[in-house]
């Protein structure tokens, strides 16, 4: 987890944002991740490429087993090896290839530059230590500041994540906090070293809707304040629409579509994205149309293909209503179909 390490960096809660200057912060190219042995393995991530710009929120969306979590863990250098094998590709961050860093250097990156929060914050908090102790110990160890200083900063962070009565919360144990509070503490801890990228893996999935909305607001708020880039991993298309600037859709270990969020929801190119968008019940149909007729959800036939099976051609072909012979034989690559909108599908070429 995000542990601050770099010394002497001032912790500022308000940073003047610089939105016009767009630069690529992180670039993932042709990433292949296998699990198993060189002889016998399953492909969890298959040729994934994407980039994250400064100050932007990129959402990776997909169903369980699509490789979204594995991708995010690989950026953090947290793929257990064995059985994980990063077979191919590069992850460029600030001119460094994260895949070829020494353990020590990677640890520094993990603390200072990239931080991560998870779905269930309870698993990353130590149940027998108080919140304040956990937050300040980390800062003391990695920033070399005094206990008093660290405590002050921890309170500052709790304020930043809008926890009421932060002094009181500092003395509490994780189990005394509600799920929403815990997630706030995790976000505060992750941000305490001012990372450039915050990776959030389904951070709101375990929370109630009203609390989820609070956390999403908080993340948007913090992004604006600190100019942090966010990589948001989720399966929920509603949440994506609320938080993302750009969206990457993954299916069976591959990226299949990438676009700005409004573009993706309005003109989905890949039949899987289209299917997903039609398969979810939506409240807005009651709000917008006057005489909305409730339609049956468009269901996608079949299930996600087995990762034990090697897929020739397009991985979605067996479930795709438009599939032709070509789809079963040749694998489509990500191509720009409309400016700024890429998809891995043969259909636009027909």
């Amino acid at each position: 987890m995000g542990k601050p390490e770099k010394k002497g960096r001032a912790l500022t809660t308000v940073v003047a944002s610089n939105p016009t200057n767009i630069e690529t912060l992180l670039r993932v190219e042709n990433l292949d991740i296998l699990f198993g042995t060189a002889k016998q393995h399953v492909v969890a991530v298959d040729g994934v490429s994407f980039k994250i710009n400064t100050g932007e929120t990129l959402a990776i969306v997909g169903e369980s087993g699509c490789g979204k979590t594995v991708t995010s863990l690989s950026i953090m250098g947290l793929i257990p090896c064995p059985p994980g094998i990063i077979d191919n590709g590069s992850i460029q961050f600030n001119g460094k290839d994260l895949l070829h860093l020494k353990m020590e250097e990677m640890r520094k990156v993990r603390g200072n530059d990239i931080a991560m929060i998870f779905q269930e914050p309870m698993t990353s908090l130590n149940p027998v230590l108080t919140v304040g102790l956990q937050m300040s110990e980390a800062m003391m160890a990695h920033k070399g500041i005094s206990r008093k200083e660290a405590r002050k900063r921890a309170i500052e962070m709790l304020k930043l994540v809008q926890i009421p009565e932060p002094e009181k919360r500092m003395e509490q144990y994780p189990h005394q906090l509600s799920g929403g509070m815990r997630q706030r503490v995790m976000i505060g801890t992750a941000l305490s070293c001012e990372p450039k990228i915050l990776i959030a893996d389904e951070p709101t999935t375990a929370l109630d809707v009203t609390v989820q909305a609070q956390i999403l607001d908080l993340m948007n708020d913090i992004k604006a304040k600190l100019d942090t880039s966010i990589l948001f991993i989720t399966h929920d298309l509603g949440v994506v629409a609320e938080i993302a600037d750009r969206v990457l859709v993954m299916y069976a270990g591959r990226t299949i579509e990438e676009a700005l969020v409004t573009e993706l929801y309005e003109n989905p190119i890949h039949p899987y994205t289209e299917g997903l968008l039609r398969a979810i019940p939506r409240l807005d149909q009651y709000l917008s149309a006057d005489n909305s007729v409730k339609e049956a959800l468009k269901q996608m036939p079949g299930i996600v293909p087995s990762i034990y099976k090697k897929i020739e051609g397009c991985s979605f072909a067996p479930r795709c209503p438009y599939a032709r012979k070509q789809c079963g034989q040749e694998r489509p690559v990500m191509k720009e179909v409309v400016p700024g909108h890429r998809a891995a599908c043969w259909k636009p070429e027909w």
Binding site: V209, Q212, A213, G238, V239, A241, L277, I280, R282, L283
Partner: peptide, 8 residues
Amino acid sequence: AVPIPNPK
């Protein structure tokens, strides 16, 4: 609070 799958 409910997230609406419509970025607009």
